[in-house]
Structure formats: structure tokens, C-alpha cells
């Protein structure tokens, strides 16, 4: 941001995260890792991938928010992180739309 006109909370005094907080986040990540492995063996059928992806997303969110300081940094960093995943979702979602809707119309080759 414009450092003269607007004062940014993240400048000058970067947020220092305590060792304890770091360890808590790490512990949560390890628990989620165990959880995803257990879930893979116990949940069968179509839900498996959904659960696995939800857990992975939570893990990624924890890393982004705490280890990567998005929670304490400027709004801009959050915006950049969100846009990256939003654009990825656009690509995956719309491409998938093509593949799952093939054959919906009874027109040869469509």
C-alpha cells in the first residue's frame, strides 16, 4: 500500500507468532494427517475423495493462515491467496462441466 498516504498495520511491526502457537498448528496438522489416512481406510464409495479433499483444504488453510501469516498480514495477501485458488476453481470447475455433461443430449458425438 501507499506508505505515505495510508498506514498499514502489517508494516514496521511484523507479527511474531509465539513458539506455542506454532506448535499448536503443527499438532493440528499432524492430527489431520492421521485423520485423512484413517478416513481413507474407513470411508468407502464416493464420499472418500470428498472427505480427503476437505481435510486437505483445512490443512492448507491452517498453513496459509498461520505458517504463512495470512491472518496477520495485510488484506492484500489474503486477496492474492484467495484469487489464486479461485482461478484454479474456475479452471477445474468449468473443464469438469464439459466432461460430466457429455452425452446429456442425445446428439451423436456430443
Amino acid at each position: 500500500m501507499n506508505t505515505h498516504a495510508t498506514h498499514n498495520s502489517s508494516d514496521h511491526h511484523p507479527h511474531v507468532m509465539s513458539v506455542q502457537m506454532n506448535l499448536v498448528i503443527f499438532a493440528a496438522l499432524m492430527v489431520l494427517l492421521v485423520l485423512t489416512v484413517v478416513a481413507a481406510y474407513t470411508i468407502t464409495g464416493g464420499w472418500g475423495i470428498l472427505v480427503a479433499m476437505v481435510i486437505a483444504t483445512v490443512k492448507a488453510a491452517l498453513i496459509l493462515a498461520y505458517f504463512m501469516h495470512v491472518r496477520f498480514g495485510s488484506k492484500l495477501q489474503l486477496l492474492f491467496a484467495i484469487s489464486a485458488f479461485f482461478w484454479l476453481a474456475l479452471m477445474l470447475g468449468i473443464t469438469l462441466l464439459d466432461y460430466i455433461s457429455r452425452g446429456w443430449l442425445s446428439i451423436d458425438g456430443k
Binding site: M1, T3, N8, S10, D11, H12, P14, G73, S74, L76, Q77, F80, A81, S83, A84, F85, W87, L88, M91, L92, T95
Partner: peptide
């Protein structure tokens, strides 16, 4: 220093956005 700090951080975040889409093509 504040301006420099903000700039280098945003630079890396932009690069990581590129990386997300780079791996994203393969995830697709």
C-alpha cells in the same frame, strides 16, 4: 523498509499464485 517489506512479500505471493495455476493445470 516498510514499503520494501510489503513489496517483496507481494512479489512472492504473486509468484505463488502463478505456481498454483502451474500445478493447477496438472490437477486439471
Amino acid at each position: 523498509a516498510a514499503q520494501q517489506h510489503e513489496s517483496v512479500l507481494l512479489g512472492m505471493w504473486s509468484f505463488l499464485a502463478t505456481e498454483v495455476l502451474f500445478f493447477g493445470g496438472l490437477f486439471c
